[in-house]
Simulated scan of single mutants.
Amino acid sequence: MEDLLEKLKLLNYDIEFLPEFKIKAINRNYFVTQTNPGEQFYTFTLLAAWLIRKAGGTFEAPQESDDPNATIAIILDYLRDTNVSIEFPPNKLKQGSGEHAIYVLDNLADEALKAQKFQWKKVQISPDEPSNEPDIEDDDAELILEKVEEEMMAEYDDEDEDILHVDDITKLYGQNFNEMQKPDDILESKTNREEWQLELERVLPQLKVTIKTDSRDWRSHIEQMKQLRTNIATNLTGTKSQLDKLHIDISNTLDKIKTRESYLNRQLEPSLKQYQMLQDELSKIKEQYRDASGGVTERTRIFNKLSEELEHVKKEMDERGSSMTDGTPLINIKKTITKMKTEISEMNIRIGVLEYSLMCARIRDRTQFQEDMNNQNTIAIS
């Protein structure tokens, strides 16, 4: 996708394409992932048509209402005319994103660059200049030698005193040492070879000089690099042959897979179309079934409600019928009437008794009143 964007920039798409169709700049992930299929497909067709026109073809800018199958067919026909292999079904481009859409746009961009007579220049890599190693100055060399001598002297001090030093030999022989180094005649050794060998083996451990190796020394690094380079050169031959063989096997396998894939696509394309048609019919049937099942559910609910009302009416009718044929209520009414008559008779008797008592009380009160009046008159006369 990044290569495609670079090619579009070389074709000045940001100056010619974007302002013409009023589209935002395309980022490097726009055609990689599916975000808005409708918008991506429309942008894909506009960009493909613009690239075809840049390549010298005739293809008017498509509209959103155009048939997508016809638009895709025109784009693929142009690619086939330019000897570009198309090994995927046209339906893959309806999404407007994915590797197939990027593949189509990349090939169209290449054709447009060819029409513009654009040529890629080979990158010129300047050879590396040899770097001169820094020379060690005399003062630094003296300092390094002094450090080495100090370390050696410290090691000599730590070892046993039996080690033979040149200074000890000088002190041993004194001032005559220089004279002994200049003999007048040729010296001849009187020591036996075997004795000399034994003496050498005895003194050899004491003559050993130990110098510490610095891991930061560039000489050791160079030796390691040389050794590693030798190992790499030794192992590279066998490894390279194996990798070449593996590359050839993988290439052959990929070619077989591509051939098989294209064959399967050609063989299965009618079946896929038929499957798509059956899928659409199944969707329609499911929609009809959903609508019909919704009506059945509503009618079932109404039926259940009417059944409940019918059961209630039947229950009321049964109760009324049983009450009309049964004589128990009539008997109960008669008993109640008889009881009420008895109670009425008792009430009449009680009323008569109360009226009699009231009448007696009135007569008694009246008699008492008359007697009181007579007594008052008698008192008044007297």
Score class of each variant (00 low, 15 high):
residue 2 E to I: 13
residue 5 L to D: 01
residue 5 L to K: 06
residue 5 L to Y: 01
residue 13 Y to P: 00
residue 14 D to C: 01
residue 19 P to A: 00
residue 20 E to M: 10
residue 22 K to P: 05
residue 26 I to E: 03
residue 37 P to L: 03
residue 42 Y to M: 06
residue 42 Y to P: 00
residue 44 F to R: 00
residue 46 L to I: 04
residue 46 L to V: 05
residue 48 A to I: 01
residue 55 A to S: 15
residue 60 E to K: 11
residue 65 S to N: 13
residue 65 S to A: 15
residue 65 S to W: 02
residue 70 A to R: 14
residue 71 T to H: 02
residue 72 I to K: 04
residue 78 Y to I: 05
residue 83 N to K: 12
residue 83 N to E: 10
residue 91 N to W: 05
residue 99 E to S: 13
residue 99 E to G: 07
residue 100 H to D: 14
residue 106 D to P: 01
residue 109 A to T: 00
residue 113 L to F: 02
residue 122 K to S: 14
residue 122 K to I: 01
residue 124 Q to T: 07
residue 127 P to L: 00
residue 127 P to K: 00
residue 128 D to W: 03
residue 128 D to L: 10
residue 130 P to K: 07
residue 137 E to V: 04
residue 138 D to M: 10
residue 148 V to T: 08
residue 149 E to L: 09
residue 149 E to Y: 02
residue 151 E to D: 15
residue 153 M to G: 04
residue 157 D to H: 12
residue 158 D to A: 14
residue 158 D to V: 03
residue 159 E to W: 09
residue 165 H to F: 11
residue 166 V to K: 06
residue 166 V to L: 15
residue 168 D to C: 03
residue 168 D to E: 10
residue 170 T to L: 15
residue 170 T to S: 13
residue 190 K to M: 10
residue 190 K to L: 13
residue 195 E to S: 12
residue 202 R to Y: 11
residue 204 L to T: 07
residue 204 L to V: 02
residue 205 P to K: 02
residue 209 V to H: 00
residue 216 R to M: 10
residue 216 R to F: 07
residue 222 I to A: 04
residue 222 I to R: 13
residue 223 E to D: 08
residue 223 E to W: 01
residue 233 A to E: 14
residue 238 G to K: 09
residue 239 T to R: 06
residue 252 N to K: 12
residue 253 T to H: 04
residue 258 K to W: 08
residue 265 N to W: 12
residue 267 Q to G: 02
residue 268 L to M: 14
residue 273 K to G: 08
residue 278 L to G: 06
residue 279 Q to P: 02
residue 280 D to C: 00
residue 285 I to M: 14
residue 289 Y to R: 05
residue 294 G to A: 10
residue 294 G to E: 14
residue 295 G to F: 08
residue 296 V to Y: 14
residue 296 V to H: 08
residue 303 F to M: 09
residue 304 N to G: 12
residue 307 S to N: 13
residue 309 E to A: 14
residue 310 L to M: 08
residue 318 D to R: 13
residue 318 D to V: 08
residue 318 D to I: 07
residue 322 S to K: 15
residue 324 M to K: 07
residue 329 P to L: 05
residue 329 P to D: 10
residue 334 K to M: 11
residue 334 K to N: 11
residue 338 T to I: 10
residue 340 M to V: 03
residue 344 I to A: 05
residue 349 I to D: 15
residue 350 R to A: 13
residue 355 E to M: 12
residue 365 D to L: 07
residue 366 R to S: 11
residue 369 F to Y: 12
residue 369 F to I: 04
residue 370 Q to F: 15
residue 376 Q to T: 15
